[in-house]
C-alpha cells in the first residue's frame, strides 16, 4: 500500500533541473589560482616566494615577474594574504621593485593569525596586461 502523493505540476521540476544543470557544468576540478577570471596574460609569469613555514608577525614576500622570458621590472605588484577560513580579512601590501631585475619585495606585510595562508600576487604591466601568482604558507604562533 502506498499513499498517493499530492498533485504536482511540471514547474516543481524547476529547482531540480536547475541543480542538475549546475552539477553538469561544475564537473571539473577547481581551478587553483588567479585573483580574477579576467584573463591573465599567459606571457606574464609570476612566482611568489615566501618561507612555507611562517610565524605570526612581519614577513617579506618576494615576487618574481617575467614577461615571456624577460624579467619585468616596471610592473605594479600587490600581495594579498588570505586565510583559508571564511570571514577572515585579507592582508594587502604593495611590493615595490627590489634589487634584482623582475624582483619585487613587500613593504610591510604581516601575518596576523596562525593557520593556513594563501599569498596571491597581482601584477599589472605598464601596458595593462595582468598576471597572477599564488603560494601557500602555514603560519605558526610566535
Amino acid at each position: 500500500m502506498r499513499e498517493r502523493p499530492g498533485r504536482t505540476s511540471l514547474t516543481s521540476f524547476l529547482p531540480l533541473a536547475l541543480l542538475l544543470l549546475i552539477v553538469l557544468a561544475g564537473c571539473r576540478p577547481p581551478d587553483a589560482g588567479g585573483a580574477s577570471a579576467r584573463a591573465a596574460d599567459p606571457d606574464v609569469r609570476v612566482r611568489v616566494e615566501a618561507p612555507p613555514e611562517g610565524v605570526v608577525g612581519p614577513e617579506t614576500v618576494r615576487v618574481l615577474v617575467l614577461d615571456g622570458d624577460v624579467p619585468a621590472s616596471d610592473a605594479t605588484v600587490t600581495v594579498t594574504g588570505d586565510m583559508t577560513h571564511a570571514g577572515m580579512v585579507p592582508v594587502v601590501a604593495d611590493a615595490p621593485p627590489a634589487d634584482a631585475p623582475g624582483a619585487y619585495l613587500t613593504d610591510d606585510f604581516a601575518y596576523d593569525m596562525a593557520g593556513d595562508w594563501v599569498l596571491t600576487a597581482e601584477v599589472t604591466l605598464p601596458d595593462g596586461r595582468h598576471g597572477f601568482g599564488e603560494t601557500r604558507v602555514t603560519v605558526a604562533r610566535p
Binding site: L19, I22, V23, A25, G26, A32, G34, A86
Partner: peptide
C-alpha cells in the same frame, strides 16, 4: 543555494572569497 553551488564549483578556491 544555487549561488553557493555555482561559486563552489566554478569560483575561486579560496574560502574567505567564495
Amino acid at each position: 543555494a544555487v549561488f553557493v553551488i555555482v561559486d563552489g564549483l566554478t569560483g575561486r578556491q579560496l574560502a574567505p572569497r567564495n
